[in-house]
Design a protein around this nucleic acid. Structure first.
Lengths: 193, 193
DNA sequence: ACGGTTCTGCACCGACCGGTACTTAACTAC
DNA sequence: GTAGTTAAGTACCGGTCGGTGCAGAACCGT
């Protein structure tokens, strides 16, 4: 009951996510966010709480959308296939045809003022969690004989994550998917046979 | 002639560089910068011009100091030694015992508002230039027979740069030098024999 | 001693920051 | 029709942003 909302919250959140993606958390002003969302500040606060909450929800949406490749990659049958799917996914997501380059979780708040500390820490945790999940998947691969017995799952996971972060920076640097795929091919030469 | 300056510009610039390093360009406020430099805003403007000029000079100092490892690495005798020196240097610089973690050129302005665009572009150029110099060094290595004839210098340079950027993000994520060195060791398995 | 020059410290500028109080509009239940 | 509820729009809040005008202080050459 009450007056119905005149905008689509999913759509507005998608727009906000793109602004955060392009600008980072702190540099994305409420004025630019709400302009992109097509609503007023008042409506944003009523619907999402505040700027930080809006970012948290945008990050959630990012994880379920553009960054879903990371979870999907874990489902690949072999450790090598997981690594390949993960890095190819990173390349695609960081170089979308009609969207911001780079990775929201990397450029969202790599460095920040004291005010942005909560979001900074949130993203640190997000990135580390992704590494832990990759590590667990590789540990399973060792148990399944899919990786050599001497392989170090944690080390391999960190290596793949590091490449992913590097790809995100290179994408922000202007490299395209073809060039990034080449880099990924080179990196995969390090993968244990 | 005129009243002599009461502070050491080099020392003040060093302090400013550290603040930019920890906060990034836009999130570093003039208040925090000048507090760290031990001078007033007026003195800063008189000595360095404005915030953007201060950053440019801090970046120059960063290149000549903490990031000098990059230029130094180019002087190594073999391509492999260059790659090793470059990545080990990146690890050391992004995890200083008593300084900010990560890399100033990466977290300085990966994403920014419109106001920060000039600095953003400056850092993009800085990072790309580093890659080009590495590429030129590897091209020379191919000519000298130091790398296999089929090796692709550009691709190898981009791979090493990507690892360097990834290391910078992992350092900001909290990883220490020992863990980062492990990651570098893993990456170097991809290096052509 | 004195004019010229440069640096310092304080107060202040307009603009924008994230966030909100309040009025009005649009709906539902009765 | 009317009371209750929620959304939308405007106008505003104190605080901070990068940047500056101005007066006085510290030096130089003469």
């Amino acid at each position: 009951m009450g007056r119905p909302r005149e905008f689509d919250t999913d759509q507005a959140l998608e727009s906000a996510m793109r602004v955060f993606w392009a600008r980072g958390y702190e540099a994305a002003s409420l004025a630019e966010l709400t302009a992109a969302m097509g609503i007023t500040k008042t409506s944003m606060y009523a619907a999402f709480g505040n700027k930080e909450e809006l970012f948290r929800k945008a990050l959630q949406r990012y994880g379920a959308g553009p960054a879903a490749y990371a979870m999907r990659a874990l489902g690949e049958p072999t450790a090598r296939a997981v690594a390949v799917a993960f890095l190819r996914g990173a390349v695609r997501t960081t170089t979308p045809p009609g969207g911001p380059t780079g990775c929201l979780t990397v450029q969202g708040a790599l460095a920040s003022s004291d005010d942005g500390r909560p979001v900074h820490d949130l993203l640190v945790d997000w990135r580390n969690d992704a590494g832990v999940r990759l590590e667990e998947r590789f540990r399973r691969a060792v148990a399944e004989g899919d990786l050599p017995p001497g392989a170090d799952p944690r080390r391999l996971a960190r290596f793949i994550m590091t490449m992913g972060f590097g790809v995100a920076v290179q994408a922000a640097n202007g490299l395209g998917p073809a060039e990034l795929d080449e880099i990924v091919d080179t990196a995969l030469l390090a993968w244990p046979s």
